[in-house]
């Protein structure tokens, strides 16, 4: 048996204020635990891992873990990660972004990091809302749901992170929810190991800003909703078209082993140097 909680404490910065800043029941805490378990499972030392986070609730994650961490500007976490990975390809770079961070403000960087296939693990914590700034609607707020800025219902359609990443050519694309912690551990472990750009989308509930406005009584109801409406991607593909509506597939959507940008860059550099 893995003594999970004891293990997690080894990787936390105990000089910071605990319990952490997240609201009761926030899925971000579960993701934090999952990152730590995955890194431990891979046997990486603290100095080998770089955790880069943008702004928002997810950005606080970089504060709590005892890896090399950068808390960057809003939406630009992937750009810093690209720099770190190119400067030292031996480091394992994990980028933690919220949905607003990854897809709205940093949408451009997300698309091009995936196209470039830079060797980082992008963890998109999708809580359907701008949680920290006051519950404004984001690019993943589902149609017809309510937020501070859309009190009569959201008219826009939402982004599908998985399809977006697949379209941009990311190596490893997967989705899980905060309730499926064991699947999250598996996917994260795989994503950190895999070369190239790896995307793990985690659906995490934001009760404080999203749930309360959308007829969820408490955070547990949001988790129950995830349990009811998610389905393994293998089973989802077998479903007939008419039964697919409203179901969210989770699991691995793409698993390629193509070399990352930094690998190709290193090879090119070797080649040019050997010519002299």
């Amino acid at each position: 048996m893995v003594e999970t909680t004891k293990l997690i404490h080894e990787y936390l910065r105990h000089s910071k204020k605990f319990p952490h800043v997240y609201c009761p029941g926030c899925g971000h805490g579960i993701v934090l635990g999952s990152i730590i378990r995955s890194v431990h499972h891979l046997g990486l030392s603290k100095d080998e891992v770089v955790l880069i986070a943008g702004i928002g609730c997810s950005g606080r994650m970089a504060v709590y873990v005892d890896f090399n961490t950068i808390h960057t500007t809003h939406g630009r976490a992937l750009t810093f990660a690209t720099g770190v990975k190119l400067a030292n390809p031996k480091l394992k770079v994990i980028v933690v972004m919220g949905d607003g961070d990854a897809l709205s403000i940093g949408g451009n960087h997300f698309i091009h990091a995936a196209r470039r296939n830079i060797g980082v693990t992008a963890l998109v914590l999708n809580n359907n809302i701008y949680g920290m700034t006051g519950g404004q609607s984001s690019s993943t707020t589902p149609e017809n749901s309510y937020s501070t800025t859309t009190p009569y219902g959201h008219l826009e359609r939402d982004f599908d992170v998985v399809n977006l990443a697949l379209g941009c050519g990311a190596n490893f694309v997967s989705r899980t929810t905060a309730l499926h912690a064991q699947l999250m551990d598996k996917l994260l472990t795989k994503a950190i190991e895999n070369p190239g750009f790896n995307v793990v989308e985690v659906l995490t509930p934001c009760f404080t800003q999203y749930g309360r406005k959308n007829k969820f009584k408490n955070v547990v109801e949001m988790y129950s909703w995830y349990r009811k409406n998610t389905i393994k991607v293998e089973k989802y593909k077998e479903l007939p078209e008419e039964k697919r509506a409203g179901k969210i597939p989770i699991g691995v959507f793409s698993d390629k082993q193509e070399p990352g940008f930094e690998e190709k860059y290193g090879q090119l550099r070797e080649k040019l140097r050997s010519k002299k």
Binding site: Y22, P24, C26, G29, I30, G33
Partner: peptide
Amino acid sequence: GCGFCELHCPDFAISVVAKDK
């Protein structure tokens, strides 16, 4: 001893340990 609470506690406030340990 399924460990669900330990894995899913967002605040790392629960531990599940086998009795012999």
